[in-house]
C-alpha cells in the first residue's frame, strides 16, 4: 500500500493514486520547510494517517501553509559582483572571474552545512566546466556532441551558485535566489543565451526546457512533450 505527497492537486485528482495528501508547498519542497523537524513531522503524520483509510481513492488537503520568506525579507546575498567581471571581454573570462568571487562563499556554505554539497553530478572541477561553457558561448556554438555532459555541467553550476548565494545562515526566499542567479550573474546571463540558442535550433529546442526555468524566462519553455528523441540522438 502507498501514501504520499501531491504538490499539484489537479494532477492527483486526475490520476487518482490510492492515498494522497495534497500540500500547498512550492515545487521542490514536498515536506514544506527545510530544517523544521516539527513541521515535517506534521506533514508526514497527516500522510501516514491515510494508511488507516479502508476505502478510496483518498485525496486529502493538508491545512497548513509552509512559512514563506518574501523577497524583501530574504537574507542578503553575500556575493559582491565587482567590476572586474564586467571588464572581461569573453564569456569564458567572465565566468571564471565570477567563479573566483563565488568560491569562498561556496566553501563557507559547505562548512555551514557540515560538508554537505550537491555539487558533483558531472564529476569535473567547476573551473573546467565554467571555462568550457564560456568557450561555447564565445564561439557561438552548442554542445551538440556532449548534451549529457552539458546537462550535468549546468546542473552543477546552478547548484554551486545556489550554495554560494545561501552561504550564510538565514531565511532565504527561493524566488530571491532565483532572481539573483538568473538576472544578476554572468552564469544566469550565459544560460539564457544557451536557452535562446537551443530554442532557435529546431532539433534541439527541447533542450531549452532543461536549461532555464519558466520563471527565469517569464513564460512557457515549450510544449509538454516526451524527451525521448533527444536521448536517442545522443546515443
Amino acid at each position: 500500500m502507498t501514501t504520499g505527497i501531491s504538490l499539484v492537486r489537479e494532477n492527483a485528482e486526475s490520476m487518482q493514486p490510492p492515498r494522497s495528501l495534497w500540500v500547498p508547498f512550492p515545487l521542490g519542497r514536498p515536506l514544506g520547510k527545510p530544517n523544521d523537524k516539527a513541521f515535517q513531522h506534521r506533514v508526514i503524520a497527516a500522510a501516514l494517517a491515510l494508511l488507516e483509510r479502508t476505502t478510496g481513492p483518498v485525496l486529502e488537503d493538508y491545512p497548513e501553509d509552509a512559512p514563506t520568506v518574501s523577497i524583501e525579507e530574504s537574507a542578503a546575498c553575500p556575493v559582491s559582483f565587482g567590476d572586474t567581471q564586467a571588464e572581461a571581454t569573453t564569456w569564458a573570462a567572465r565566468l571564471v572571474s565570477e567563479l573566483t568571487q563565488m568560491q569562498p562563499w561556496y566553501d563557507l556554505g559547505k562548512r555551514r552545512r557540515n560538508g554537505r554539497s550537491l555539487v558533483g553530478v558531472a564529476g569535473e572541477p567547476m573551473q573546467t566546466m565554467l571555462k568550457k561553457l564560456g568557450e561555447l558561448l564565445d564561439s557561438d556554438t552548442l554542445p551538440t556532441a556532449e548534451l549529457k555532459w552539458f546537462k550535468l555541467a549546468i546542473e552543477d553550476a546552478k547548484v554551486f551558485y545556489i550554495e554560494a548565494l545561501t552561504a550564510q545562515p538565514g531565511e532565504y526566499s527561493a524566488q530571491a535566489i532565483e532572481q539573483i542567479l538568473w538576472h544578476e550573474t554572468h552564469l544566469g546571463a550565459g544560460l539564457r543565451v544557451f536557452y535562446e540558442r537551443f530554442t532557435a535550433t529546431p532539433k534541439l529546442a527541447i533542450m531549452a526546457r532543461m536549461v532555464a526555468s519558466r520563471e527565469a524566462i517569464g513564460g512557457s519553455t515549450g510544449e509538454e512533450i516526451e524527451i525521448n528523441d533527444i536521448t536517442k540522438k545522443e546515443k
Binding site: 512550492p26 552545512r113 546537462k151
Partner: peptide, 13 residues
C-alpha cells in the same frame, strides 16, 4: 531534468 522546481530547500536539508 526539470529546471522548474526549487533546489535551494534541498540544499539546506
Amino acid at each position: 531534468s526539470s529546471a522548474n522546481f526549487d533546489r535551494s530547500g534541498f540544499v539546506e536539508d
